[in-house]
Design a protein around this nucleic acid. Structure first.
Lengths: 190, 190
DNA sequence: CGGTTTCATATGACGATGTCATGTGAACGA
DNA sequence: TCGTTCACATGACATCGTCATATGAAACCG
């Protein structure tokens, strides 16, 4: 036997998983409340018992993605990597990697309002973890500005790459090389 | 009296202008074929006489934006600016400026497939103009990779800034300072 | 244990939207 | 002048997000 609360929690989780799946495989247009509900095996009105509306469901997906990414970078910071510069390169690659593996989810992360409290908290957590890694390379005094630069560049590299505007044939370089180039430039600039 | 072709061209232009207007003021959700048609004063089926579907209309908007941006950078290259580095800073700021002034149009530019022939051509034109400006600073041999890095970073700075994830209170820097920081780092790296 | 309440889910309905088939009237070409 | 073409209008349809309402079983309470 299953308690009512357990069943509800299961349904809620299944709804999120179904939405995530549909987003990954079919893009944003495939994420339809009806399709999500159908995949879980509930009716089209059921999601409204767990989320205020479609936007809230997607926001939850984005918040979870932010949190997961923050945790991944935190693990990277704790792991005994080689040199601090190599660890920084790994951290930046992690950011770009999310965009490569799950482009639609990545886009969703940045389409949810940054002032949403939970998303802001998870984003702040990612910022702090990343900041620590950068500080190990450039020192604490310049960490903030260079971290902002690195994060912005990673975001741009990811965006251009995913959108197809950073093709190797046109630019002769790929995203990974740009990451290394940027870190080298920052290191040389002190 | 107006010839039929003239009237059609006028309608087509008006449809694009109305869509652009709705996009700027109300975001992507406000761009409805019905709203576009209503603003022009035609029926809801009329747009299908000028564009294959809604996606094609938006693609045309994006292509025009790419072309316009390419022209702007070309003008910048031709203008007698101060130092090459200052001109480069101006070019990067131009890219970021589009995202600031017309965020929804900017997002649309990168959501249209990069393999669309006309968009690819306009993007290539922008790339060449930008490449020239970068070459004046870092020399022709390294221009390609640094141009790719600068363009990516500009794209990322713009994206983070527009999405609210690059707030000055959280990072103590703004997009313009990041642009200068990046150019300085590149210059120091040679 | 029996009655009542609660709550997750089901169902019907509504407005909005993209899209197409069809109709229409005026400009066009011979 | 008379068909033809073509830009546009209109009606219709499927799909979507959303809500009001119904239902049935779990939860609670005496």
């Amino acid at each position: 036997m299953v308690t009512r609360a357990e069943a509800a929690a299961t349904t809620r989780t299944a709804l999120l998983a179904a939405a995530s799946d549909l987003l990954d495989t079919g893009g944003p247009d495939a994420v339809t409340l009806r399709a999500v509900a159908a995949r879980v095996g509930v009716s089209r009105g059921a999601p409204y018992g767990h989320f205020e509306n479609k936007e809230a469901l997607l926001a939850r997906l984005a918040i979870d993605a932010w949190t997961s990414l923050a945790q991944e970078v935190e693990r990277l910071r704790a792991a005994p990597g080689p040199t601090p510069a190599a660890r920084l390169e790994g951290a930046v690659s992690t950011l770009v990697g999310v965009a490569r593996r799950r482009p639609h989810l990545y886009a969703l992360m940045f389409s949810t309002p940054a002032d949403e409290p939970q998303a802001a908290q998870a984003a702040g957590r990612l910022q702090r973890a990343f900041l620590d890694i950068v500080a190990d390379v450039v020192g604490p005094s310049q960490a903030l500005s260079y971290a902002a630069l690195l994060m912005s560049s990673a975001h741009g590299i990811a965006g251009l790459e995913v959108s197809g505007h950073l093709s190797k044939e046109k630019w002769t370089v790929d995203g990974d090389e740009l990451v290394r180039l940027l870190i080298a430039a920052i290191a040389s600039a002190r």
